[in-house]
């Protein structure tokens, strides 16, 4: 699995944003902060709690000059329906062969689906934060947001430091 200061591996795959489908690659990450999160599959009952969790923070994420991208092994058509179902306002990449998840080191090869892994990536394409949880445990979107704010503050941050609360 990728770790802190590792470079984002190069990748290229189709993704959907709203109803628009296009090719997404590591080049889309350059020049701005990114939250990349892998999740096992569309149309399940743990994943939407995370997917909509990120969706609720979309405006704040934009203000932090950051983009969110979700990645799973589902095909583009499935992503389209999933986006429509949940009203997702950020792109979902279709990693059908699991290559992207594998290059990030988060592919569960037993069933060719991704673990619940989250990466915060700097504009220079360096990994700044990683978190991976068991298939049965949804990740904390709030914690991801706190870490993003803390990293962007550039401060030395003690436990649970949150620039928003410090203001």
């Amino acid at each position: 699995m990728l770790s802190i200061n590792d470079k984002v591996p190069s990748f290229s795959a189709l993704g959907v944003n709203g109803s628009a489908t296009r090719e997404y690659s590591d080049k889309d990450l350059a020049g701005k902060w990114s939250i990349i999160f892998f999740y096992p599959e569309d149309f399940s009952f743990i994943c939407p709690t995370e997917v909509t969790g990120f969706n609720r923070h979309i405006e704040e994420v934009k203000k932090l000059d950051t983009q969110i991208i979700g990645i799973s092994v589902d095909p583009v058509d499935m992503h389209k329906e999933w986006i429509k179902e949940l009203g997702i306002k950020y792109p979902l990449i279709s990693d059908e062969d699991g290559k992207i998840a594998k290059s990030f080191g988060v592919l569960d090869e037993a069933d060719n689906r991704a673990h619940r892994a989250t990466f915060i990536i700097s504009p220079q394409l360096n990994i700044e934060f990683t978190m991976v949880t068991s298939r049965n445990v949804g990740r904390s979107v709030e914690e991801t947001m706190r870490v993003l704010r803390a990293i962007q503050s550039g401060n030395l941050c003690p436990a649970d430091y949150d620039p928003v609360k410090e203001e």
Binding site: F43, S44, F45, M78, E81, W82, E85
Partner: peptide, 16 residues
């Protein structure tokens, strides 16, 4: 969800 899919519904329909 899995039960409904095994019974023949596609995933989005079973989910709904």
């Amino acid at each position: 969800l899995e039960e409904f899919m095994n019974a023949g519904l596609d995933k989005p329909t079973a989910y709904k």
